[in-house]
Each structure stands twice: as C-alpha cells, then as structure tokens.
Design a protein around this nucleic acid. Sequence first.
DNA 1: TTAAAGTAAGTTATCGTTAACTAACATATT
DNA 2: AATATGTTAGTTAACGATAACTTACTTTAA
Lengths: 197, 197
Amino acid sequence: MNEITKRQKDYLNAAIGLVSERGFSKLTFRNIAQEVGVTEASVYRHFSNKLDLLRALLKDLEESIAPHFEKLVDTSIPPKERLEQLIKGLFCAFEKNSAHTSIIFSEEAFHSEEELRNDLKSISERNISFLSSFYKDLQENQLCRSDIDSKELALVTLGSIKLTVTRWRICEKNLGLEDAVSNLINTHSVLFNLRNE
Amino acid sequence: MNEITKRQKDYLNAAIGLVSERGFSKLTFRNIAQEVGVTEASVYRHFSNKLDLLRALLKDLEESIAPHFEKLVDTSIPPKERLEQLIKGLFCAFEKNSAHTSIIFSEEAFHSEEELRNDLKSISERNISFLSSFYKDLQENQLCRSDIDSKELALVTLGSIKLTVTRWRICEKNLGLEDAVSNLINTHSVLFNLRNE
DNA sequence: TTAAAGTAAGTTATCGTTAACTAACATATT
DNA sequence: AATATGTTAGTTAACGATAACTTACTTTAA
C-alpha cells in the first residue's frame, strides 16, 4: 500500500541481487543485511517481517515489468515493432537481473504464501490480457491470423518467452540471448502471419 | 547410478507427495520420515544425504516423464494422435502428482546445486530433441508447415505445455485441465498446419 | 547369525523474529 | 537561543524453531 522509501529500495536491490545470483533460497534477512552492510535486525526497521519484504519485492518487480506490456497497446508504433519491443524489453530486464525471472515466473517460490501467490497470479493474468488485446486489435485490422482466438495466441507468446528465458538461465548464459530474441520474433511473425499494414 | 530399492521408492513417493502438496521448501528429512511413519535418521539409511535424495528424486521423475516423449517417434500411430497422447499423458502425470511440474519445470529449485541443474538441463534438452525430430519427420512428409525450423516448433510446443501447467497450478485447479488440453491441441493443429496424412 | 532397518538423542548451523538500547538529526516549545 | 520531544537507522544479544546430519544402540528378518 504505502510508497517505498529510498532506503527500502536499497534493501530491495540487495534482495534482487541475492535472488539473481544465489537463488531464492538464499533470500534471508541475514544475507540482505550482509549485502547492504548492516545488521540483520536493521532490516526490520524497514520491513516488519518477511511477508512484508516479499510483498514489496513482488511489487517492485512488477512495476519494472508492467510498462513493457502496457506499451503493447500504443497504436502509434507498427505492431511488429511493438511485439519486438516487448520481447527485447523483457529480455533486457532479465539480463540485468535474473531475479525477475526467478520471481515473476516462479509460482513455486510463493507456494507457501497464499497472498503472494494470488498477487503473482494477478500479475500474470494482467500480462496475458495485454498481450491478448494486442492480438485482438491486430486481428480486427487484418494484420494477424484470426483463425485462432487472440488469448490462445497470447498464451503461445508468453509460453515461448518464459521457456526461452528459462533455457537461457539454465545454460548459464552460454547461448546468445540476442539470437534467441530474433528467433522468437521471426517465429511469431511467420506463425501468426503478422503484418505491419 | 545404482538401482533403486523398493524401500527407497517408498521414501521417494513420500517426497513427491510432499513437494506436490506443500511445496519444495517443505521437502525435508523430517517431513519425509513423518510421511513414511519412521524416524528422521531412518531416511539416512536409504539416502546418504540430501543431494543423494534429490538425485534419486530427479531420476525417478525423469523416468516417469521420458516415455511420453519417446512415444512421439512411434510412427505406427497417426502424428496428431501422437502429439495428443504426449500432451494428455503429461497432463495426466501432472494431475496425479504436481511435484512433477515443481521439479521438472523448476530450475529455481536446483539453483544451488550445479550437478542437479545440469541433470535438469539434460532432461529438458532431451525432451526438446524428441519433439524436434517429431516435427522434422512430419515436415519431411508434408504433414506439417515447414517454413519454420522444427526446433522452433518444438520450443513453442514445450513452452505452451509448461505455461498451461503453471497456470493450472496457480489457479488451484479451478479451470478445467481437460479444456486446456484440447485448446492446446487445437491451437497446435491450426498454427502448425498439422495433418494426419 | 548377521546384515538391513529403525530408534533415541544428540550435534551444529541457520532461520525469522524480538527486546533493549544508542547515536544523529529534525521539529516544536519555551 | 536553549531545551524538550520525536524520528530514523542503526547496534548487540538473545529467543524458539527447524534444518541437515551423526553416533550409539536396538529390533527384525533372511
């Protein structure tokens, strides 16, 4: 609910780095404190408990990802470019902090906390709905195949993005992310018969 | 390496149930022991440490999933049916034990253990390669669109399957898995222009 | 009778969390 | 200007719970 303070943001950045580099299981008050250079108890000055911290973390990550999906409905840009910008934007964010993928894409992480699980669900459904209305608009303007429901197209796109990121993470960044992105865009163009006009 | 004993299998089943119902973080020696009805130390009679247990768990899950992918190359069955059987088979396995999804699909769970991360990677690549050669064969027989590389098609399919399972899990099984399956198959038929002959 | 399976009772380490207290600074009152 | 009050961000030290893991002893079954 409340706005985040500058100092809280410091702690959150430490948390994000921790998840990115050492995994979700290493996200502890001790480790965050160590990263920031303070004591464990000090973290409690800014987050009253772990749920509170996770809530803030999820919100912070959502705010860094949502804009990419929102841009999908900006009709001043050619549709294929919009999709390209979404994919590139997301992958760029993921490259900077793979915590984004760990958290945004991992329902497992929040298995125990129903509230956070629901938050994660909302974020995911919102992203799907942006993608879906993007495709619906294209279909209505004959810029995309319309023999498949726009929501199904959205699910295919999101699934591909998630899988690509997952594989890229697991391969320890061996395979080029750039190539993966252009493959993704090309595959979508052909498969969905995307046109700019 | 070694074959698994009957008693070990009991413990693994308990472990799978645990992950399915209470999440990966609740997979502890204490909880496994409690499920089986023995003492914590007893579990150590069968698995020398946690890495050993996770190794066995991963192998066990792989053995229950691999056959579904292997059936893809059985040319005695019409191709569309083969794909349908893969998807249905996987979803059926996931419905019985959602641990399969937590583990097979979650790179996060094994973030800290490089050995297991590599195992997971191998399993994933193997599955992709089965799907890929399935599509390649179809393409060579003009039973599938061939303007996109078979591996890209495989990635789209796997991504869709994973996303569908994830969403189904997160929604607490509210939305029907049956519908999701038939949607998936239909979307693939149309999108990939799949034919039986 | 001997090897496999189980137990009780510990170890050490780390987790989230709290309590009691301090130093530095801003604001308000006299 | 000087004093009083409040806030912010930090400290040390401990709490109970739980994790992985060990040792020494007992039961059970081929």
